[in-house]
């Protein structure tokens, strides 16, 4: 069969060392790469290292939750889409839709991210060392014990936290000058749940969001996320936490409740 041939072909780029798999993804089609990953899943492999990744999509989708994957290069769109628990570390930048509708797991990016980080994610954590694009955390949500978190080390663009229904979204602005503002506009438009913590000023807020002072519980949540963030990138958490943060919360859990005539 064609697909099996492709996997066998892909296997030529595979080296197995005990429970670690090394893959050279040079020239590999995303479908073949992901089939290869699925074929390794559940065979005693615990760690997969993929090098020379150039835009292959959907890495981490439909894999078991005990795996950890190290990616060298630039994974393509929808990294970890619908992911249910894999730990992914990206040594490079990620493209759009990283963590799309992710349920569980962790993505740590040593670089920048494109648009739509964590679209509709419901669980797990995403850490981006540098900047991220538009609509980070759009429609992320929480329920019962699941509370997703996204931490952006740099800044993020317009519609940050749009339609946000739950979870925690942190933007640290570590690469910004002291006292400067994030450029993002329409931050929290349509937000109806969850919390954003933003270090540095916010230039333009959506209508459905209000700014509050952080209380002790907020500092606990923020502190633990910043600690974890800094542990991945060798940064000083205390120094980051010294600065002033603003807390953004929705004005109402029912932003559009008065639109209708009955």
């Amino acid at each position: 069969m064609v697909l099996e041939d492709a996997i066998n072909n892909a296997r030529k780029n595979l080296i197995l060392k005990k429970n670690v798999a090394l893959i050279d993804a040079t020239g590999m089609y995303y479908r073949d790469l992901n089939s290869l990953l699925r074929s390794l899943d559940g065979n005693g492999i615990e760690k997969i290292e993929i090098c020379n990744v150039y835009g292959q999509r959907y890495i981490g989708t439909d894999l078991d939750d005990h795996l950890s994957i190290d990616i060298y290069g630039t994974p393509g769109n929808d990294l970890g889409a619908f992911m249910k628990g894999v730990n992914i570390t990206v040594h490079g930048n990620v493209q759009d839709g990283c963590g799309n509708t992710m349920d569980h797991g962790r993505i740590v990016v040593h670089g920048r991210a494109g648009d739509l980080v964590g679209h509709s994610m419901r669980g797990g954590k995403i850490f981006i060392r540098d900047d991220a694009g538009y609509r980070v955390g759009i429609h992320m949500k929480e329920y019962l014990g699941k509370r997703p978190a996204i931490v952006i080390g740099g800044t993020a663009q317009d519609f940050l936290g749009e339609y946000m229904a739950g979870g925690v979204l942190v933007v640290l602005g570590t690469n910004m000058k002291d006292g400067s503002c994030h450029d993002a506009r329409f931050v929290g438009t349509g937000m109806h749940g969850g919390t954003m913590y933003i270090r540095g000023g916010v230039r333009h807020l959506g209508e459905e969001v209000e700014v509050k002072e952080l209380n002790e519980a907020d500092y606990r949540i923020l502190g633990s996320l910043v600690d974890e963030f800094c542990s991945y990138y060798g940064l000083d958490a205390e120094k980051i936490l010294e600065s002033k943060f603003s807390k953004l919360v929705p004005v109402s859990s029912r932003p559009y409740g008065n639109l209708y005539a009955y």
Binding site: G166, G193, S253, G257
Partner: peptide
């Protein structure tokens, strides 16, 4: 899989 009592938008 959304919070109790909030609008499902």
């Amino acid at each position: 899989m959304i919070p109790l009592g909030t609008d499902a938008l």
